[in-house]
Design a protein around this nucleic acid. Structure first.
Lengths: 224, 224
DNA sequence: GTCTATAATTTGATAGAC
DNA sequence: GTCTATCAAATTATAGAC
């Protein structure tokens, strides 16, 4: 475990009048970190719905009121956790660029994506269901505004000629759907989730009609 | 609109002692229907999170207490709505069996599935996110326990030889992922959702590398 | 059958003492 | 900076009158 990204806060209009001792942002950041740590533990253990200011405060020996000195409100904490989780996922994917073979890289990415969702169900839910905060990432619209889409778009581009934006979006959707169903419908995976991912990949790798026999074994990854 | 399925209640231990006038289950069912109608309207308009016993009661001029005469608790209402929504989706899919061409039928099913999610976002959420009540449908485990999976499994079987259980599951996951992302990530669809569905279908129809030119135009359907 | 009244919780957020 | 005290809403569910 361990936090991955910290997210710089918008200084906004925080600590209003004057600060007694710790005017230094370093201390302030440290406290924010403690709060987020506690919040993350709650979400990972009990889900986002169980996250309340009181529980966070209790977990770190604070009063609920003190939290508002470091975060505007509950939503800001949720957004920070969401951004963290997204970054964590991106790291899990980035770790797969080591695979040089285009087809192998695509499989590695796909398996890593689903493995992440399986390993961190509540984090995944937080990012993609509970706090769908999009970071438009520049002003670009369309599917490519989503960082993960670009990862899959590049992986697809390395494969062959047909590389639409819709194609990459569809691939992402496939993996997202696999994770979501694994998290919400017990027994969806059947014997193994990897098997389902393999079936989906067969289509994108152009071996749809073949007997499911191929080179490049599944690369297990992710799970920070 | 209009309710689709009614769900027989488990008589359990409802109306305890004796009933004054309307002992007849017909009246009881009618009241249950009114309650569900109100509940459905709330969910469709404001989402499942906004569904409360008070709001339902207000909507039909009841007191909150009276609802408990017809439903065990809030969860039973939610489950009933979820079952309704699932049946509605199945109807939208069943309406596509008219398409005789195997490839065309698969496309029609896929487009109908996604169109349903797009047309009834809160209902879709209710069924697959908020109230993931599985109806194990016999005691069979595995992906085939899910009725919609069987629909896609049959459609795939008509296409060719390679028809795993994982394959059908993966196809369902793709469509589910497309709907979910369309509902949660603004701008995911890009110009059109159908385009994304087409891209996904290209893989399953074996024309992944082709230039996206094919017979059998998309069959718009669903939306009760 | 239906309502009134209410218990029992839980929540986010703030005012003001220290 | 931190806490105590508290407000203001909601919510589910039940007891008991009518």
């Amino acid at each position: 475990m361990g936090r991955t990204v910290q997210m710089e806060q918008t200084p906004g209009r925080a600590h209003g009048g004057r600060a007694g001792e710790a005017e230094r942002p370093a201390l302030r950041q440290a406290q924010r970190g403690r709060i987020l740590d506690a919040a993350r533990r709650i979400v990972v253990r009990d889900g986002f719905a169980a996250l309340s200011m009181r529980k966070i405060a209790d977990a770190i020996g604070y009063s609920p009121a003190s939290l508002y000195l470091y975060f505007e409100n509950r939503d800001e904490i949720a957004r920070a956790l969401g951004a963290e989780g997204y970054a964590q996922l991106r790291e899990a994917l980035d770790a797969q660029i080591q695979v040089v073979d285009p087809a192998g890289r695509l499989r590695a990415l796909a398996q890593a994506y689903v493995a992440f969702g399986e390993a961190h169900p509540e984090t995944y839910r937080l990012v993609f269901v509970d706090v769908p905060t999009v970071q438009p990432e520049e002003g670009m619209p369309g599917p490519d505004a989503e960082p993960v889409v670009r990862v899959f778009a590049e992986a697809l581009a390395a494969l062959g000629p047909t590389t639409d934006a819709p194609h990459a979006a569809a691939l992402w959707a496939t993996l997202h759907g696999i994770v979501m169903l694994a998290l919400t419908r017990p027994g969806f995976a059947g014997p193994s989730l990897e098997r389902v991912v393999e079936a989906a990949l067969a289509a994108w790798l152009g071996t749809a009609a073949a007997g499911r026999k191929r080179a490049g074994k599944p690369t297990r990854a992710a799970s920070t």
